[in-house]
């Protein structure tokens, strides 16, 4: 199996967008993983569909956004023949699941949702051009990140195997998490303040005084 070129990595990254559609209670992301990694096996003519399915359609868990790392590392392990595939998948299942859920659902999604809510309330719940521009920009930036993390995961995972997971212990990653945590907390505090101001300014509670 040759090192995948940029086009192949992009194809694999594109396929990871569909990894969740195959999610099931039997093997979790096992079917999705087979779907994602198949092009590289088929291009190198080393395995048929049946072989790929027999080898990889077993219980596997990941986070959909970090599934690029899973694809890259599994392809690397499969190619080199070094290391136990089952052990590699177990490591990936635990690391990617927890890191991805914390990064996306506890930090990035709240930061985007809270920014949007703050913008709505600052504009008095009137969708002006600025609010629309801010929200579309936030979603566009997230989607650029969404594609980049999948591409980067496949590329790094294929180059460095399980070593690539060390990125989640690096000082840069820790700093990013700290910044996102601070941003989320500041945005939440701002939202509370903004809602209290809105409550006072818009005379919503006037009903009680009459």
């Amino acid at each position: 199996m040759n090192k995948p070129d940029r086009k192949t990595i992009l194809l694999l990254a594109f396929r990871t967008y569909f990894i969740r559609i195959f999610y099931n209670y039997n093997n979790l992301f096992g079917e999705g993983l087979c779907y994602c990694i198949f092009p590289l096996f088929s291009s190198s003519c080393t395995s048929s569909r049946e072989e790929v399915a027999a080898k990889h359609m077993m219980t596997f868990n990941t986070n959909e956004y970090l599934s690029g790392f899973a694809v890259g590392i599994i392809l690397k392990t499969s190619e080199s023949g070094e290391g136990d595939m089952e052990r590699t998948k177990n490591i990936l299942s635990s690391v990617l699941g927890s890191v991805g859920d914390r990064l996306i659902y506890r930090l990035i999604l709240p930061v985007i949702a809270l920014s949007a809510a703050n913008k709505f309330i600052i504009s008095g719940f009137k969708p002006d051009a600025c609010s629309i521009a801010v929200i579309i920009s936030l979603v566009a930036v997230f989607n650029i990140f969404n594609l980049w993390i999948r591409y980067f995961g496949i590329s790094k995972g294929y180059d460095r195997g399980l070593e690539s997971l060390k990125i989640f212990k690096s000082p840069v990653y820790t700093r990013i998490v700290r910044i996102l945590t601070a941003a989320r907390n500041i945005l939440t505090a701002l939202l509370v303040i903004n809602f209290v101001i809105y409550l006072k300014v818009s005379n919503i509670l006037l009903f009680f005084y009459n």
Binding site: F18, R20, I21, I112, A113, P127, I132, V139, F142, N143
Partner: peptide, 20 residues
């Protein structure tokens, strides 16, 4: 939101703009 892409384009803050 559940199965494909998961690009946050269907989160309420986005679909609200569509409804407006």
């Amino acid at each position: 939101s559940r199965d494909v892409v998961n690009g946050l384009i269907t989160q309420p803050f986005m679909t609200a703009l569509f409804l407006i």
